[in-house]
Amino acid sequence: MWWDWLVADAAAQEPAIAARAITMRGPAGPVYGPVDLDIDAGGLTVLVGAPGVGRDALLLTLAGRMRPDTGTLLVLGRSRVQDIFDGAALAAIDGVDELSDTATVGDLITEKLRWDAHWYKVVRRADAHALARVCGPVFGDLPLPPLSEAAGELSELDAMLLRIALANTGRPPLLVVGDVEQVATDRDREQLVGRLVALGEHQTVVTASANGVTTAGVRNILVEDHPRHAAAAQEEGEA
């Protein structure tokens, strides 16, 4: 596979992700940082911190979709943003991969398979085989959504798993997933985490949570708020 060299690099170097004093600024000021991270290869790692633009931007950075303004970042032994991008899948981030409410599961799978295919290859409309191939590794023992189901009618859990499945068709060595608390109910969120743990048997999986995850074997890493957030909270308390 084209990413074998990335896997080899990850196996030869620990940790899989090493960030030192990375920061990002936007028009309104600091977005995140400075952040130091060491994330081991394989398994599921949860970045624990307040939800918002800063945490999403950090996830985007780890997946090679954004470049930090300062600091150093190594992902699977690579520092160039395009190389990081090529070795990472990104799912369930607002503004990046929302599902169209009116599109069916079959529509979405067909579109993704056509996007993945070489320009000269004819990709027919997704059938039950394509559904199993795309969604099976992510859904595991959970029921697959019907091809005819509109995305807007899916449960939170099924919609989240479908977004992950669509992002992860290439099965790169790194999978970055947005906030697990997008799935509101405890039972469904536990099932989501369980599926991410299963994917972590073959990939390095990174996600985020405001409260952390207590599932055995899951690594939780606290990501501190930027000082400006802490200052704002202190000012509110004093008021």
Rank of each mutant, 00 (worst) to 15 (best):
T204S: 07
L154M: 14
V134C: 14
G217T: 11
A150K: 10
A231H: 11
A21E: 07
D36N: 12
V183F: 02
E224S: 07
E149G: 01
S209K: 02
L76G: 08
A41D: 02
V193L: 01
A19M: 05
V205D: 01
I109G: 07
P173Q: 13
G217A: 05
Q182P: 09
I221T: 05
E236K: 03
A150T: 11
Q191P: 00
D38K: 14
M66P: 00
V223N: 03
G194E: 05
M160F: 15
L108Y: 04
V197F: 06
S79V: 02
D158Y: 00
H226S: 06
V81Q: 06
V7N: 00
D94C: 04
A88L: 02
W5R: 07
E238P: 02
V193D: 03
A233S: 09
V75G: 01
A8C: 00
V31H: 07
K112C: 05
V7M: 08
V218Q: 10
A126K: 07
Q203K: 03
V81T: 15
E236Y: 03
D97G: 04
V46K: 04
R80C: 01
T104M: 08
L44P: 08
T207M: 08
W115H: 12
G29H: 14
V213S: 02
R55L: 15
L60Y: 05
L162D: 02
